[in-house]
Amino acid sequence: MVKRGFLYEIRKNRTLFLMALPAVLLILLISYIPMAGIILAFKDYRFDLGVFGSHWNGFENFKYFFNSGTGLRVTRNTILYNLLNLATSQLFAIMIAIFINEMRGKYFKKVSQSVIFLPFFISWTIVGVFVYNIFNYETGTLNSMLKSLHMDPVNLYSTPTVWIFIICFFNSWKWVGYTSVIYIASILSIDAECFEAAEIDGANIFQKVFYITIPSISPTIFIMFLLNIGRILRGDFQMFYQIIGNNGQLFDTTDVIDTFVFRSLLTSGDIAMPAAATFYQSVLCFVIIMVVNGAIRKTRPDNALF
């Protein structure tokens, strides 16, 4: 058989190639070309010289980033927040999915599911307004309630540790509805006969949940964790920025790689540290996802991502 080349394919399926072309060019433009910017991590960037004209400076940027203590701090925060948020939001989503699925009242089921899904549709800007609305010192709802109970108002903006809980809460608030929809879909695909058989054998709901539902959705849980492990060094910029903003007092416990990069970019204009941070974040994320996926492909090939 003659091996048919690329040019033959192009001639044969000219229209199909043309149809895929806009998306290919777009992704080249907005994703692939900017990847070249990753070399900035090893350069002393000057705006007038551009990405390629600027001079190389070896590992200076990395030294600067880690020696200043910033590197470790933002890395630690990013990883810890991701683990905490992943655990809490998945746990709540699984609980809500199981509970909603077991409900008999059709109307209650529908309304509560809609309400819990609603926050997904709200932009982080509005969440930023909520935070201001509830927690600001002078007029926030929290303090006005405390005052009406004759208690002293609290200034949360000088208590960094509280924000760990606030961030964790709003992360779950935003994502639990979304994630539970995925889990509900997964529960609905379980064979109904399993439940019927268990019922005939006299199993109660707890037993059905622990011995049928949870084992059956475990591949979905696994995939959700896998997807998130690949993002463990990526902070949800929109969330952190809207909840914390540029409040320097809280950075020690709330600054993640993405907020740090952004702030350096827009405020100081000195991109040595953010360039190093970006490189380190992108490369490590890629390595982690490749290693994890490779390991899974060896042990549980059905659950691998690609």
């Binding site: 907005i30 994703s31 900017p34 990847m35 070249a36 910017g37 990753i38 900035l40 990405v51 690949g230 910029f237 993405d258 990069v261 952004f262 970019l265 991109i271 953010p274 360039a275 970006t278 490189f279 974040q281 992108s282 994320c285 890629f286 996802i289 490749m290």
Partner: peptide
């Protein structure tokens, strides 16, 4: 899986 990050996109 891999991207250049916001810094390079911005520039």
């Amino acid at each position: 899986l891999f991207n250049g990050g916001i810094l390079s996109t911005y520039i």
